[in-house]
Amino acid sequence: MTAEEIRDLLVETFGEEKINGANLDAIDPWVEVAPAAIAEVATFLKHDERTKFDHLNCLSGVDYLQPDPKKAKTFNHEPHIQVVYHLSSYDLKHKITVKVKLPRWKDGNEGDLPEVPTVSGVWRIADWHERETFDLVGINFVGHPNLVRILCAEDWVGHPLRKDYEFPLEYHGMRCK
């Protein structure tokens, strides 16, 4: 299926309010899904005979914030966070990118991580990818069985891939800066 057909299928199944938008002219065409519906949409994409997206290639978090004033003039995004799911199918040999847009902080309270339902029940590899995204980007995957840091140390503070992350001055007596 082409990206356009997949988008149309999703809109037909879930309606416009759950499938918020799409960019089909991008190098990797993507479909945007409402955060609350992602687990439902992922289950559909994996199990439906027409899509059969059995492989989760990659799950990443992107923090859309440009703290550098020099670069800010070419940057035309409202501050937000995206979770990007790259999917493909071994049987049908097609692929799609699914995006979820979240606020940078839950309800605007700085320090409260934004929430999105987990897809670790759909693809088991999402378990580790979500742990990594939680660790580095700071996204709370609700319903994840074991959402703990995976790459950084357990007592690390902050989420390094946030654009406004400040490096600690020291860690257990070791100078970092």
């Binding site: 290639n57 990443s60 992107v62 670069k71 070419t74 990007v84 790259h86």
Partner: peptide
């Protein structure tokens, strides 16, 4: 724009995900 590309490395499919924003540095390199 953004791109995600996988290649067949000896140990498996290594993927690189780049988000550009009109600057020299990628906005996100994964």
């Amino acid at each position: 724009d953004e791109v995600y590309l996988e290649t067949e490395c000896p140990r498996g499919a290594m993927g690189f995900y780049f988000v550009g924003d009109g600057n020299t540095e990628p906005f996100r390199a994964r």
